[in-house]
């Protein structure tokens, strides 16, 4: 399965962390959108450029070992830490920085925030 491509995801205005390079694989194909209102445009863009599979976390659950990247619209407390804690690459569309009870898990190697559609580019 060599059909997947890589993208670089950089922090947007006021954001923190990254850049992250995301490359889905046959084992980890999912672009996991844990956001309100269905698949977020940032998740859709990552899926479009990489060939990964956009997945709505509020519709059904995904096994963590299938997730290439989680896209969240977290306001800074909970989701920002949950996915990094589980070693999942995490993209927050809001401009948050490490905070909250799970802040110690939020590292620039695994987390980037303030990300808009234009911050996702082909590598």
């Amino acid at each position: 399965m060599s059909d997947y491509k890589s993208v670089t995801i950089s922090k947007g205005r006021g954001g923190w962390g990254g850049p992250l390079v995301i490359t889905p694989t046959a084992d980890k194909p999912l672009i996991y959108s844990v956001t309100g209102g269905g698949i977020h445009p940032v998740a859709a863009r990552i899926a479009e450029l990489t060939g990964g599979q956009a997945f709505d976390g509020f519709k059904s659950s995904a096994p963590f070992d299938k997730i290439a990247v989680a896209v969240i619209d977290c306001g800074g407390t909970a989701r920002v830490g949950v996915y990094p804690m589980k070693k999942v690459m995490t993209v927050d569309v809001h401009a948050t920085s490490p905070a909250g009870p799970l802040a110690s898990f939020i590292k620039e190697e695994i987390f980037v925030s303030g990300v808009g559609v234009n911050d996702v580019v082909e590598k």
């Binding site: 306001g75 800074g76 909970a78 905070a99």
Partner: peptide
Amino acid sequence: GHIDLKANGAPEADMPGD
């Protein structure tokens, strides 16, 4: 259905979800 309540006594929200 998501909300983060913080009993911090602070007059301004540090994070956009606070």
